Each structure stands twice: as structure tokens, then as C-alpha cells.
Amino acid sequence: MNTKTSAAAPWNVWTWPNLVTMIRFAGIPVFCYLLIATHHYIAALVVLAVGGGTDWVDGFLARRLGQVSRFGRLLDPLVDRLYILVAVVVLTGVGLLPWQFTSVLLVREVVMAATVLALRWRGYEALQVHYVGKTATFVIFASFPVFVLAGLHNAAEVWARPLGWALAWWGITLYWLSAAIYIVQAVGLLRAARAPTPTGRP
């Protein structure tokens, strides 16, 4: 169940889970520099794999250490989305990802942004990350190096591109499924906010 912003967990910015999230966030410009400025594709993919593949670490630490915070709840999904958006846009720009893949992901992000704004307008926090969304993020990240491998090595394209598309469609399906779950939850909250409060008889 979601709560109003005033009833949320304390901010607690300086915690170990938030430090991990900040380090992951710092990897985004490093990835862009390695890929665009130096063309070190392998090093860029390593940064991407570490930053995206460790998205579960901060959440695990927050629960294990009892350091769940509002700041972490906001920053963690934001960093996950930034990793995906930056990666797909940059990799598409250099011709290593198909534009169809990028278009479907960008449309989903627009839908989710509109949902979050609607919740904020009513005074609610963003919904907590669902395990379906986390799984989708992991699978989508797994498709990136496969697509890059297919684009960089002709010998690998015969098997890497079909594998990349299989991972991509699996991830995209889960990604949109998680969006549907969030939207259903958000609509329920917004309807409850608009419903008149019943009054009892004296």
C-alpha cells in the first residue's frame, strides 16, 4: 500500500545503500565518455554491466541494514531508468541498437513519467519498485552486450542478433507488464483520493 508523502520514511541521505546508488549514478557519464569520446566499447560495456547488474545491491543493503529511506526510494529507480535511457539512446546513436527497440522503451518511459506526475499532483510518492520491473531491467541490460557483440563482430552476428532480440522482447514484455501493474495501482490510489469520505449517522 502506498502512503502520502508526509507519512513516508525519513530521508537519511548518507547511508550505505544510497552510497552504492550514487556510485552507480556516477558510472553513467563514464559510460558515455568511454563509448562516444574514446570508442572503448568493451570498457563502456563493463561499466554498463556493473552499473546495471548491481541494481539489486542497494535495495538488498537497505533492507538488510534497516536503512530504507525516502531518498533511496526516489534515487534507486531514477538511476535504473537513467541507465536504461542513456544506454539505449547512446547505443542507438552509434548504430549498435535497433531504433525499434529504443522507440518501445522510450514510449514506456513517457507513460511511466505521466503516471508518476499524476501521483505527485495528488501528493503521493512514486510507487515502490515491483519485482517484475526489476526483472525486466535485468533482462534488458543483458540484451545490450549481445546487440553490441552482434554489431562489432560479423562472425558473432548469426547467433548474437537473434539472442539479443529474444532477450529484448522478453525484457520489453516484462517492462510493459510492470508498467501495467504500476498504472493499475496508481489508478486505484487516484480514485480513492477522489472518492468522498463517508459520514456516519449521528
Rank of each mutant, 00 (worst) to 15 (best):
H40W: 12
Y175E: 06
F71A: 12
T137V: 05
R120W: 15
T21V: 05
E109G: 11
V20P: 05
E157D: 09
M112S: 04
N12Q: 15
W176H: 12
W99Y: 06
I42V: 09
E125M: 13
R122Y: 13
F60T: 13
L61S: 11
V47H: 09
G164T: 02
D58R: 06
M112Y: 03
D76W: 11
W99N: 05
V90T: 07
D55E: 15
G171E: 00
A136L: 09
W99H: 07
G52Q: 09
A192S: 11
T38N: 05
E157V: 10
V139D: 01
C32L: 13
L85T: 14
G123Y: 11
L189M: 10
A179K: 02
A136G: 09
I28A: 10
L35D: 02
W165A: 01
G133S: 08
P198Q: 09
V86P: 08
S103M: 15
A8Y: 13
L19T: 10
Y175G: 06
S69E: 06
A62F: 09
V57G: 04
H130C: 14
Q100A: 13
P162I: 00
R70A: 15
V104C: 06
L117Q: 05
A37R: 12
Y83G: 04
L35V: 15
A166T: 08
V104I: 15
F101V: 11
T92Q: 02
K4Y: 04
A8E: 14
L152D: 08
I28P: 00
L75T: 04
W16D: 01
R64Y: 12
V13K: 12
L174P: 08
A150Q: 02
D55F: 15
W16R: 04
V139R: 01
L190N: 00
A195S: 09
A192E: 05
K4Q: 11
H40I: 04
T21R: 07
W159R: 04
A113E: 14
E157P: 00
T15E: 09
S6W: 06
L61N: 06
D76I: 07
R122G: 00
W159V: 10
P162H: 00
Q128H: 14
L163E: 00
A113W: 14
P77R: 03
F60W: 15
P98S: 10
V107Y: 07
V47P: 07
A155P: 02
I181K: 10
L177V: 14
L119G: 00
A156L: 12
L78W: 07
P10N: 05
V89Q: 05
V90Y: 01
Q128V: 14
T102S: 12
T21F: 05
G53F: 02
Y124W: 12
L149I: 06
G53E: 08
G188K: 02
L177T: 13
